[in-house]
Amino acid sequence: MAPPRFDRHPWVPDSGRKKMWKLPKQYSHFAFGAIQAAVTCAVASAIASMQFVAEGTFISHWLRAYFFSWIAMLPVVVIVAPFIRWLANRITN
């Protein structure tokens, strides 16, 4: 009997596609920072762009604000994340 496969769901047929490329574990904090910055900037720029809904230009303003805020926040998040993790560990059990 063949060992079970854990790389895909049993009810999804194998399409023959290659597996998704992954970053090594040592870079997980960079991936975390990029994803966290992306989500935070998406929400914040959407809230800041709400005034453009009535004009019908929300999407263009939101995308521009999202792009510039993500570019600005990514280095901040990646640099500050280790300190935040250290601080969170210090103030919790």
Rank of each mutant, 00 (worst) to 15 (best):
A44F: 06
I47Q: 07
S69F: 01
H9E: 13
V39A: 15
P3N: 14
V43G: 09
K18S: 13
L23D: 01
A42M: 12
F67Y: 05
A46H: 10
V53C: 00
P4R: 05
R90L: 12
A42N: 05
V78S: 13
R85W: 00
D7N: 01
V78N: 12
I47E: 07
T57N: 10
A81C: 02
P75A: 06
G16D: 13
N89H: 12
V80C: 02
V78C: 15
I71T: 13
F83W: 15
R17D: 15
A65N: 14
L74K: 01
A54C: 01
Y66E: 08
Y27V: 04
A48E: 03
W11M: 14
A46C: 09
K18H: 07
A72D: 07
F58L: 01
A72K: 07
L87A: 15
W86T: 11
V80I: 10
V78H: 05
Q51P: 00
I84V: 15
V53F: 00
F52C: 06
P24V: 09
A46E: 06
F67K: 12
H61F: 00
A81N: 08
K25L: 12
M73S: 11
K19Y: 05
I47N: 03
P3C: 01
M73F: 13
T40N: 05
S60Y: 02
R8D: 11
S49Q: 05
V39K: 10
V12S: 10
F32S: 04
L63W: 04
F67E: 08
A46T: 07
F67V: 03
L87I: 05
L87Y: 11
R85N: 01
P82S: 11
A2E: 09
A46F: 15
N93A: 15
R90A: 11
Y27A: 10
P3E: 02
W62D: 09
I91M: 13
T92P: 07
S49L: 03
S60V: 15
M50H: 04
A48L: 13
Y66C: 06
Q36W: 09
D7H: 00
F32A: 06
V43E: 03
F68V: 07
E55A: 15
R64K: 07
F83C: 14
L87S: 14
F32E: 03
A72G: 06
D14E: 14
A72W: 08
I35R: 08
I84C: 07
S69C: 04
V53T: 00
S45W: 00
I79K: 13
A81Y: 02
I91S: 06
F58P: 00
R90D: 07
V77T: 12
H61K: 00
Y66P: 09
Y27E: 02
I79S: 13
F32K: 02
L87Q: 13
A48Y: 11
